[in-house]
């Protein structure tokens, strides 16, 4: 139960199984993510990539196998779940900001309530991270008054304000207009360069090439291929991976 354990992998997934009714969504997934490692997960839609990363912070409950995050096993123990969620930040495809709170409040609420930080400290932290994602001037606005790209950067700042050890990104640029994708990716690249442990589900292959330590290709609930980016893009072994890459990179 020691969240600050500094040895061992950040995330270890062993023989993970997940069913939706009779649909077998994840089949015996094995994955180990080292601290500071940057993983990009890609694959066709319905392949289970989102489901897998949503299992890591228990937004989805797994049906078999083991998930260990920072040395804590993710099981029915509510204390364990809370502990893991405190240390694992998540960014969603549709931003999911709280529309009834200002940008600043979005960033302050969890540190104040979950981490019991005093207000002044929470605000300083929030402003620092808003600065980092380059929208300090929007602090007093409401999410609905910002563009999609700005909202996603607020969502990243909100997750970072909890000072997590691991960040999960679930297709963070898929709902954005093309001209806004770059501003979000920029923030993510910088985060990666600072040594954050990141697991990103994304189709941004340029991003994968640039920052990933490992690229994982999933199809039909399985990890089909796993390789460092240069190897992944040049000499993938699997037919399904090749087909997928030709479709994503084809244009």
């Amino acid at each position: 139960m020691n969240s600050t354990q500094s040895s061992g992998p950040a995330v270890r997934i062993e023989n993970l199984d997940k069913y939706y009714g009779s649909f077998h969504a994840l089949r015996k997934i094995n994955l180990s993510v080292k601290r500071g490692e940057r993983i990009v997960v890609c694959g066709p839609s319905g392949s289970g990539k989102s489901t897998m990363i949503r299992c890591i912070n228990r937004l989805e409950q797994h049906n078999g196998g083991r998930i260990t995050v920072l040395g804590t096993e993710l099981n029915d123990d509510v204390g364990n779940i809370d502990e893991i969620r405190r240390e694992v930040g998540m960014v969603f495809q549709h931003f999911n900001l709280f529309p009834h709170m200002t940008v600043l409040e979005n960033c302050m609420i969890a540190p104040m309530i979950v981490r019991k930080r005093p207000r002044a400290e929470a605000e300083t932290t929030a402003r620092r991270y808003l600065e980092k994602v380059r929208i300090p001037e929007q602090a007093m606005k409401f999410p609905g008054q910002l563009s999609g790209g700005q909202q996603q950067r607020v969502a990243i700042a909100r997750a970072l304000c909890m000072q997590p050890q691991i960040m999960l990104f679930d297709e963070p640029t898929s709902a954005l207009d093309p001209e806004m994708i770059a501003e979000v990716l920029d923030v993510m690249v910088r985060l990666a360069s600072e040594g954050m442990t990141m697991i990103c589900v994304t189709h941004e292959m340029g991003f994968a090439r640039r920052v990933a330590d490992r690229v994982i290709f999933m199809d039909a609930g399985e990890i089909v291929e796993e390789a460092p980016p240069e190897e992944f893009f040049t000499s993938c072994r699997n037919e399904r991976t090749r087909q997928f890459l030709s479709q994503v990179l084809g244009h």
């Binding site: 969603f92 931003f95 900001l97 969890a110 979950v114």
Partner: peptide, 15 residues
């Protein structure tokens, strides 16, 4: 209420 907002809140560790 969108499920997303509640998931976001849960993922931040809120009870």
């Amino acid at each position: 209420v969108g499920k997303g907002q509640m998931e976001a809140a849960l993922s931040l560790g809120l009870s």
